[in-house]
Amino acid sequence: MDITLTIVGQSIAFFVFWWFCQTKVWPLFANVLDERKKKIAEGLDAANRAQKDLQLAQARSTEQLKEAKVEAAEIIESANRRAAQIVDEAKEQAREEGKRIIAGAHAEIEQEINRAREDLREQVASIAIAGAEKILERSVDRAANEEMLNKLAAEL
C-alpha cells in the first residue's frame, strides 16, 4: 500500500468530475424530468377534467333524452287529438254533405214530381178534351172550357 501521486490525481479528477456532473449533466436530466412531471400532471389533470366533462355531458344527454321523450309524448298526444278532431270534423262534414245531397235529391224529386204532375195535368186536360170530343163527337171549344179544364187538372 504505497501512497503516491495517484491519490492527488484521483482527488483532482474527483472534484473536476463533480463540477462537470453538477453543471453539465445534472441540470439536463433534472429539467427533462421536471418537465415530464409537469406534463404528466397536466395530462392527468386534463384526463380528470375530461372525465368530469364526460359525466356532465352524460347527465345533460340523459336530461335531454328525458325531455325529448316527454316532448315526443306530448307531440304524439296532440297529434292523436288533432287526428281525432280531424276525423270528427270530417265525419261532421260528411254528414252535412250527405244531408245536403239528400236535401238536393229531395228537391229534385219534388221538382220532378211537380213537372210530372204538370205534364200529367196538361195531358189530362188533353185526354179529357179528347174524351169529351169523342163523347160529344164534336170539338169542344177549348177556350170556352178552359176554366172547367183547369179545375179538373187542379183536382188531379
Binding site: 504505497d2 503516491t4 501521486l5 495517484t6 484521483q10 479528477a13 456532473c21 453539465k24 427533462v32
Partner: peptide
Amino acid sequence: GFMALHVDVMAWSLLLGGGALLFFRYIG
C-alpha cells in the same frame, strides 16, 4: 516513493468517469 503516478489506473479512472459523464451529457 510518493513521486509516482500509476498511469494505468489513473487512465482507466479518467476514461471511465469522464466517459460516463460525457455519455450522460450526450444523452441529456
